[in-house]
Nucleic acid binder design. Structure first.
Lengths: 376, 376
DNA sequence: CACTTAACTGAATCGTGCA
DNA sequence: GTGCACGATTCAGTTAAGT
């Protein structure tokens, strides 16, 4: 039997219990129909990356005039929220049937769809264990300056019910995180570089997820040999990571093009040797502090006067962390510093000082204080 | 009139439009009833920190918002979610009525309730602009080691509808974040230390939010003088920050103990003075300067040659402020820039450069010089 | 080959105001 | 309502080209 197979005719109930799972294979076809062909209580985990129902408007261009390649695929289009909800509840209900009683489900989404997914998860009797935030190290900016940079996606992790047991490899997570409990916010780069599948220089799938994200999920919530089902398989990230980690996988995918890419990719994936584990550790978030954060947190009040160490320039701190000079010029600590000195650049942290009693101290000391107070 | 007042009897519709808002006051009582007493389209922002325990502290509401007196312990999960949904939709619907057409709403929650809140927000016609993650610098650990440390809460920011306008102080946020776009993940410590309200050494409110969080929200999405409503006022964090930032506020709170703490706290809060309150302006808010005005005033002589920074295109400035290219094309600085580059749009101010000695400078620097010379 | 610079890209609900 | 002029707007990372 090949790696890709058509969906088998659904078995009658009596047969279902003894049905052999199509392990390490892709079922090509509609995800709900394919799930119906699988027996009840048969898989240990489900990872799902369903359509987000983005509802994008017109074309978008960057400030340099280049065009943004958006997700315009048909599979992401739903007429109404009601239609999206119906689809969501249908596949989540099948997923609930297929999961073993001690299995868990992961679903990823963005603010466009995740609230509807989460509500459906709860209504269907699943019990949410955590929501996890994937902080993107390099998100696409908001080109028009109309909102906050949409820099994260959300994952929901749920068991089959309130009393259900589940697998959570607490020690693995703590080890992975330098002996500190793994938190609910994870930072990873978006999928790019050599990991991003391309055909003739064009990305094969518009929303390929980074392997590191799936890796952490499988490591945290499955055991070696467990069966992981991905009903929206795409280009097979879940399969590739499962193979690397010694887990079994089942993929469901409608598009033949994605299936073909997934087959080739998984065939090339190598089971992980242990030494690679060390390199998978997430880099800790950089302790970068914006000046405005000190104002927000009361380390420096708006209205405070700052000077350089020779008291040549005097500026006032404003509510948003910008500075205002006596001559009416304004800007960030770095920009105004360089403007007043007429130098191309300036490190505002060491240039600007505040009065502490009788002595001038660089504002950088406040940053250090803040870091000491907030970093574990 | 004192800072706390009982809820006025709801006005008849005819009266509502001219009703005076109870600014900088706490309405003590049920949040839905209190909101009904406020006129339609009257507040600029709503910040809401609703209860997320499904029992609502022993209170439940029917879909019409009316109060359910008896709470039995045998509600099954569906009924409990249904009751929470009914309560959520009732107050969110009132909030929608009270908001000005260009107002926005913020709601904070955790995975227990935020998915239901988000679904209700969308179903009621609000348009989600961002979801924001508050990353707690110092979250409570997961003592049993059974899940990931629950280290964040989620906020939803939404306008009244897809086409609605809204306030977003992009420049202030960028300045606050050291000249990098503000992202959708924010890190703040949890509320503690001197900021945490205590009575006899015991915290007054179980879920007091940090002022820094509200500060950033108000700075980002309101203007000085705007009216901010908080229907779950608690100990008045929203009021204290609004006062500091020169915004007006209305609080609704049921518990007399919280009201008393809030009154004292807000009375002690000091407003920022006007110069500290000023924030970085978007260029949009500055007076517009037509390119032709620079020519008229001699900042740039007619006949001057402009190029792009790579010197690919050369154009000549004409007496009326239009540009003429070597190939005979003509137009405004923006039009000709986009035409020559064959891009849909172009900011002529940053695209075109003039020769200053040996270096190319964007013509935008001339506009800045002009503004400095002519603005009071 | 080493190094620098330019070009390109990613799940995006991405403008305003006047005639 | 529609059309058009004006002009505001990007971060981190990778790849390719140039020196």
């Amino acid at each position: 039997m090949g790696l890709v197979q058509a969906i088998a005719r659904p078995k009658r109930r009596e047969e279902a219990d003894v049905q052999v799972l199509p392990l390490d294979q892709i079922l090509m076809g509609d995800c709900i129909a394919a799930m119906r062909s699988l027996p009840a209580k048969s898989v240990d985990m489900i990872f799902a990356d369903p359509p987000y129902n983005l509802q994008l408007g017109g074309e978008l261009f960057r400030p340099d005039g280049s065009h943004v390649d958006a997700v315009t695929d048909d599979w992401d289009k739903f007429d109404t929220f009601a239609a999206y909800d119906a689809f969501t509840r249908a596949w989540l209900a099948e997923a609930h049937r297929i999961l073993k009683d001690n299995g868990t489900i992961w679903v990823i989404g963005s603010y466009h769809n995740i609230f509807r997914v989460g509500t459906a998860v709860q209504d269907l009797g699943y019990w949410i264990l955590n929501d996890i935030v994937w902080r993107k190290a390099n998100p696409m900016p908001n080109f028009k300056g109309t909102r906050f940079t949409n820099a994260h996606e959300t994952l929901i992790w749920a068991s089959k019910g309130e009393k259900a047991k589940y697998t959570f490899n607490y020690r693995s997570m703590k080890t992975l995180n330098d002996e500190i409990q793994m938190r609910s916010d994870w930072e990873f780069p978006i999928c790019g570089g050599g990991e991003r599948l391309k055909r003739d220089g064009v990305k094969v799938h518009p929303t390929q997820k980074p392997e590191a994200l799936i890796y952490r999920i499988l490591l945290a919530c499955t055991k070696p040999g467990d069966v992981v089902l991905d009903p929206f398989f795409g280009t097979g990230t879940t399969g590739a990571v499962a193979k690397r980690l010694g887990r079994r996988w089942i993929g469901i995918e409608r598009e033949p093009g994605y299936c073909a890419a997934a087959v080739a990719r998984i065939a090339a994936a190598l089971p992980l040797d242990e030494s690679a584990l060390a390199t998978m550790q997430s880099p800790k978030a950089k302790p970068r502090v914006a000046f405005g954060v000190l104002v927000e947190n009361g380390y420096l009040a708006a209205g405070t006067v700052l000077t350089d160490h020779k008291r040549r320039f005097r500026v006032t701190v404003r509510a948003d962390g910008s500075l205002l000079s006596a001559c009416g010029r304004e800007g960030s600590i770095h920009r105004l510093g360089s403007a007043l000195q007429e130098t191309p650049a300036c490190n505002g942290w060491t240039f600007w000082h505040y009065e502490d009693g009788d002595v001038l101290k660089p504002i950088d000391t406040l940053r250090q204080t803040y870091l000491l107070a907030t970093q574990p």
